[in-house]
Design a protein around this nucleic acid. Structure first.
Lengths: 209, 209
DNA sequence: CACTTGCCTAAGCGCTTGCTCACCTACAGG
DNA sequence: CCTGTAGGTGAGCAAGCGCTTAGGCAAGTG
């Protein structure tokens, strides 16, 4: 149901997870965590959604927290890849910032279930796993700050507070996962385009077509 | 500890809650919900923080969910008041939008524990309570949209997509509650000023001092 | 004084939780 | 044919959950 809608997007998700039973459990966990939150989700619920008995979960994952960590890790890897691809691309700073926001937002809207878990269940992770994930987030931050700094140096942007603006841009994009609704009026593409425009205005780039 | 820092802000919080024991429980619940989330917080934890036995909680509140509802209701009332005050104030649309964002963000940063509970534990509420709160949120949305519409009509703003931009502005402000940290480098005032500037850029208002 | 009222606790009930364990089945290799 | 391995189940344990109950104590009122 929910997962099917998400699958319609760009690529087959979680293709890297095997065997099949482990992937089905992980998909079920994403749905459950996104709908009810990590702590409100029971292992029986996850196993049930995957069509298995509660005990089957523990053949593929040591604990419920390991499931969350796997989801969080894969999601953050994807998010970082999106931002780094845009940051390392060709073109002006404005073009790269626009591409970064557009694709980052599109991912958060199109995979809003995964994104919700990835972005809002951070402190349900154990100590070690959380520090690992926080390191990935700092790299995402660096990628965006890099583009904005480039734009300022090139005279394309007018940004008095680069770290603050970087924070605001990422915050704006991430929060899409909270409010985006499949039944809503906007498609992920439309939100991406709108947000790219808004962010260019935030950095004082001359409006582009 | 955490509550003390929050108290340093504008006014004595939760002054409207009485008797004293009920207020202590509510403050304890805000801290606990903000730190660990509603579902991960136990009634024993809340009562313990308030220096009472677990059973004492049920003298003042029927259920744990009623505690969350009270917090959510008071918080949303406060947030709506802030936005309506700014929207109904004097001055140009740019001045009113700037004031709205500045005070709204200042509240989310200064009372980030309360704000976190208010903004991110919505679906832990029961059916009835949630619909009540959602109605308040729609009013907040209307207040901001009102200002932006005024600005467009007056020719002060250049906004192609008013509903979308309204959504983005509110989203940007709300997400402050997620990342704001007391130990961080920025004060609530500074974040408010930064965000007011960014939002004016988003609506294409001519830069003001 | 007796009696009510407001606020609180110790004990614990019924249930659900994350997780385990003994056992089952399908199938591949020798 | 036997045996090892991968992937599954039903039953259930210990712990913790939200919440209730019976009762205690201090202050206010007739």
């Amino acid at each position: 149901m929910g997962a099917a809608q998400e699958t319609l997007g760009e690529e087959q998700p979680w293709a890297e997870v095997s065997p099949d039973a482990a992937r089905r459990l992980l998909v079920a966990a994403v749905e459950a965590f996104a709908e009810r939150g990590y702590h409100a989700t029971t292992t029986r619920d996850i196993a049930g959604r995957a069509g298995m008995s509660p005990a089957a979960l523990y053949i593929h994952y040591k604990t419920k927290e390991e499931l969350l960590h796997r989801i969080s890790r894969l999601g953050h890897d994807k998010a970082l890849t999106i931002l780094r691809t845009a940051a390392d691309g060709d073109g002006t700073a404005a073009e790269r910032l626009s591409a970064a926001v557009r694709s980052f937002v599109r991912w958060h809207a199109g995979h809003h279930m995964t994104a919700r878990v990835v972005q809002y269940e951070l402190d349900a992770l154990g100590e070690e796993h959380r520090t690992e994930i926080v390191a990935l987030r700092r790299q995402s931050d660096a990628a965006v700050r890099e583009i904005i700094n480039d734009g300022v140096r090139a005279g394309e942007f007018d940004v008095p507070d680069v770290p603050g603006t970087t924070l605001a841009v990422l915050s704006l994009c991430i929060d899409v996962a909270r409010w985006f609704n499949v039944a809503g009026r906007r498609t992920p593409d439309e939100v991406g385009a709108l947000y790219a425009d808004l962010v260019l205005r935030m950095v004082g780039a001359s409006p582009q077509k």
